[in-house]
Design a protein around this nucleic acid. Structure first.
Lengths: 249, 249
DNA sequence: CGAATAGTGTCTGTGAGACAATATATG
DNA sequence: CATATATTGTCTCACAGACACTATTCG
């Protein structure tokens, strides 16, 4: 029996010495303040790509899967208290070019992380031992002006496109806003991600179907008080349509 | 300088002995015949999961990325002449649970592959050295009746959902028919994937905007001859909406 | 009061979906 | 001619988007 299994093993995995790689996760951590989409970056101190911006990340440990590693790194690298920020983490894509890290073969499973904010202040990054100066930066400015290490520009771009697409047909945008929120907060998330100015009236009508009215109101600096909502349905039907700016790739 | 780099290396990659994994690709290969969606499976001869169906796959080599490995395995495991079938391959997701293969730590990057058919015959699988009895099976029947090895049921389900979602707003369905095709062929793809019966008239009107009329016609066994089209736009605007059956998840 | 904002009302155009009508092929 | 299919036409309903309007609050 044992011999059979061993034989079978060899049959399935022909090469006795199979290739092995180092497995990491990279994180695109998004949050929105004042209608501006921000992400967490780390300024690289050493080679390669010294001085460039990089995404937080780290190794996947032997006893965890990639998603678990992403959550752990999110906590370690950013020093965030994730319970307070109702984080959402999902897998994006895997980057496996043999040349993506000049030092060694590193395959990275990129993840998208969304943190809730009150629309005024970004989650505080209290640098832990790992966190070498992790800080928030406006995503669109970074993409326009900054050099990004490794293939992190590709990862960031893909993360942005994923988010922009996903909020069309889901209430994923609510992950970037407190559990109880006013419609203007949610609308600002859409504006930040889509670089748009959605009509407040139409937005109200289309969203309220998927939301629960708490009955409470919240005062703004000026104007009428806004109703406080919570999410009822995770999916939007019919979907919201992204206005012209780059709708198709 | 050399010392600095070494020092920096250690700074970035703290653990001297970083964890390593075996990296593989798994393939979900789809094709459509007579309005039925099929996929390629391999009946497992040995443990674990003896007798269960598995997806084709294999190791990612040291000098290639996952997508390249997927193309290579598609050729090797199925013995297909890919040029003839205008294959489309894209990354799906990465499966990294430490227990997904009881023998060792294997991380797999799942890929979706689409093969074009003339709607009558499936691409012939000429088993190469690797291909231990790879064969086509109807996807919905397999999901209903068969045991699937490892986490391949999850992978297959995710592939199906990805395809079903993607053909809503792209002409990805055209990857499953010849380069020049009649509308009924394309419609049969939608019916196979969505398990639907789309109205032929409405389908014609919505599709023709994204297609180029070749001017030629093709005769059917009965009825009027159908116009032959090619793809003009890769994206559908406005998108096609999937009818009720399982629209949301 | 004036300015700003929330939420509703209204109108118009587009298009989806159901189905009829017409044209074209086979046997 | 009977039947099957492609393609176009027609009608109705839903809704998106633009924008006006009302209500509510702050200074």
């Amino acid at each position: 029996m044992m011999a059979t299994e061993e034989q079978q093993f060899l049959e399935d995995y022909e090469p006795k010495e199979y290739p092995s790689v180092a497995l990491t996760v990279d994180l695109v951590v998004f949050a929105v303040t004042d209608s501006v989409l921000h992400a967490v970056f780390i300024r690289r101190g050493g080679r390669p790509f010294r001085g460039a911006l990089a995404l937080p990340g780290g190794f996947v440990k032997p006893d965890e899967d990639a998603l678990h590693a992403a959550w752990r790194e999110l906590e370690e690298e950013t020093g965030l208290d994730l319970g307070r920020h109702r984080a959402h983490v999902e897998q994006l894509a895997t980057y496996s070019s043999p040349e993506r890290d000049p030092r060694m073969r590193v395959v990275s499973v990129a993840h998208l992380a969304l943190l809730a904010t009150d629309s005024r202040t970004l989650p505080g990054l209290s640098p832990g031992s790992d966190a070498s100066a992790a800080h928030w930066k406006p995503v669109h400015e970074v993409l326009a002006d900054e050099e990004l290490a490794f293939d992190h520009r590709d990862i960031l771009t893909e993360a942005l496109e994923r988010l922009a697409g996903k909020i069309e047909y889901t209430l994923t945008a609510a992950r970037l806003v407190p559990e109880e929120f006013a419609l203007y907060q949610l609308r600002h998330v859409y504006d930040a991600v889509w670089n748009s100015r959605l009509d407040a009236g139409n937005f109200t009508r289309k969203m309220t179907g998927a939301l629960t009215d708490t009955g409470r109101k919240v005062a703004r600096s000026k104007g009428a008080p806004a109703t406080v909502f919570t999410v009822k349905d995770e999916y939007l039907s019919p979907p919201l349509v992204r206005p012209a700016a780059g709708a198709h790739r």
